[in-house]
Structure formats: C-alpha cells, structure tokens
C-alpha cells in the first residue's frame, strides 16, 4: 500500500506496551506488515509481556504472610527481633502523627542553631554558590556515569558514598565533583528539579566522632542543613526556604541511613 516511514525501535516498544496513540498504532501495524523480521520481533516482545503475567500474576492472589498482614492491618507483631517491634511501633506512631513533627522521634532534632556552623559548612556553601550557578560545567562527572562517579568519590573519601535518589521529591542527579577541603577530599553531589532549581549535597570525613542533630544555617542567600553521621559529615544546600529544604534533608538523611 503506502510506503510508511521507518519506525524506530522506541516506537516499536511503545506499540508493544500500548503506550502509543491510535494513529501511531495503525502506522506501526501497516509498517510491520511489510517487515516480517521486525514483526516477529514485536510478536516475541508481546509474548514476553504475556509470559511475565502468566508466570507472576498468581502472586497477586496469594494470602499475605503474617508479617504483611500485621502491617496491612496496623497491628504489628514481632518478626525477627524485638527491635523490629520498636521500629514498627515508632513507624506507626510517626505515621499517625504525620508531618515533620514526627521527626524528633528519630532522635534527630533540628538543633538550636546557636553555635557557629563548622568551617566545612562555609566551604560547602561556597562550593554551592560557585558550582550551582555554573551553566556549562556544573559537575565533573555527570549522572549518566553515576556508578563511576560514586565509586570514584567513595575511593577518594575512603568511605562508601551514595547519591541518594530524590526522584520522589522531584530532584534528579546532575552529577558530582571532587573538592579540596582543608587538605582532605570532599564530594559534592548536585541535583536539579524540573524547574532547574539546584541543590547540592556536600560530604566529607567528619572531624568529630559524635553524631549531631540536624542544624540549620542561612547565609549568603542560601539555606543549609548540616549534620554529622560518623564517619561522614554532610551539608545540604539550596536556594530555597528552610521549610522547603527540610523534607529533602530528611530524605537525604534517610537514604544514607542504611
């Protein structure tokens, strides 16, 4: 019939997954009619999807394990250790309270902010101001090489690092860089939201061994939460109000927690 334009691979997958509009679907089908090899491939992919459902849909109807039942009904029972019970109780309580008010139950208050911030926080803020505004080279290694970035910085800092996933808060990793900090190495991870708003997470070896609560400082037009969770010290910096930064700080803290 007609000579449809070539269909690219992404379009074929979108066809397989039903993530294509009606016109697109018709176009793919008429193209496939003339391309038996691709048509066989598409049929194989469709069969894969059907096969996955055949293999695993049965799980949907399996009765819940006692642990899951307890969670589902909100009546936690111990699973392995007494710690689980306490953790669960705290979780349910936090859940009931909702909001940031629950945070202090983690033993992490916001701190009084009365003492002057440590020197590393000033350096972290400086690094944020310099690099977050950089258009062409905001990072040394981009998020497309995240594994390499994290591995490299972990090696330089001598501690396993991670770049927390902040997607649920609307921020994605831009990348990171290595920075000097008083003769030692520091890592800066940069994130960006859909509107281009950037935040940086600065990590270095902690100089003290005591963990600290969250502390907050606003200076030079940016907000910073910082804390020590030995052996590392953290600062999270962005040009946004304290209230907006706090939930992100919680997420970053939670991501590093284990």
């Amino acid at each position: 019939m007609t000579a449809p334009r070539p269909i690219d691979d992404n379009t074929l997958h979108a066809y397989v997954d039903g993530q294509i509009d009606e016109d697109g679907r018709r176009e793919v089908e008429s193209w496939l009619a003339d391309h038996p090899e691709e048509e066989a491939r598409v049929r194989a992919y469709l069969a894969q999807n059907a096969g996955l459902h055949a293999l695993y849909d049965g799980v949907l109807d399996e009765p819940l394990s006692p642990g899951l039942t307890a969670l589902a009904t909100g009546t936690p029972k111990t699973r392995t250790a007494a710690g689980t019970w306490r953790r669960l109780a705290a979780a349910v309580l936090l859940f009931a309270l909702g909001g940031a008010a629950g945070w202090s139950l983690h033993g992490v208050g916001e701190g009084g902010g009365s003492s002057a911030e440590p020197a590393f926080v000033r350096r972290a803020v400086g690094a944020h101001i310099v690099y977050a505004s950089e258009v062409r080279h905001p990072v040394e290694v981009g998020a497309d090489e995240e594994d390499h970035l994290v591995g490299w910085l972990s090696k330089r800092l001598g501690s396993p690092l991670k770049a927390p996933n902040l997607a649920s808060l609307g921020f994605s990793l831009v990348g990171g860089r290595l920075l000097p900090d008083e003769g030692t190495a520091a890592a800066q991870f940069m994130y960006e939201d859909a509107s281009g708003r950037r935040l940086t997470c600065y990590v270095r070896a902690a100089s003290e061994r005591e963990d600290t609560a969250f502390r907050f400082v606003a200076e030079r037009g940016v907000s910073a939460f910082y804390w020590v969770d030995a052996p590392l010290a953290y600062a999270l910096i962005a040009e946004m109000p304290k209230d907006a930064l706090l939930p992100i700080a919680h997420a970053v803290y939670a991501a590093w927690e284990r």
């Binding site: 642990g67 940031a100 649920s168 919680h250």
Partner: peptide, 20 residues
Amino acid sequence: ADDLVQDCLERALSRFHLFR
C-alpha cells in the same frame, strides 16, 4: 520477597511525612 516488601512497607510508613 515478602521480607523485602515488609521492609519496604515499614520504611514507607515511617517516611510517609516525606511523601509529597
């Protein structure tokens, strides 16, 4: 698998205040 889901739920419930 159920242990993983249970860990996930516990974490979700305890972090729900972070969910937008």
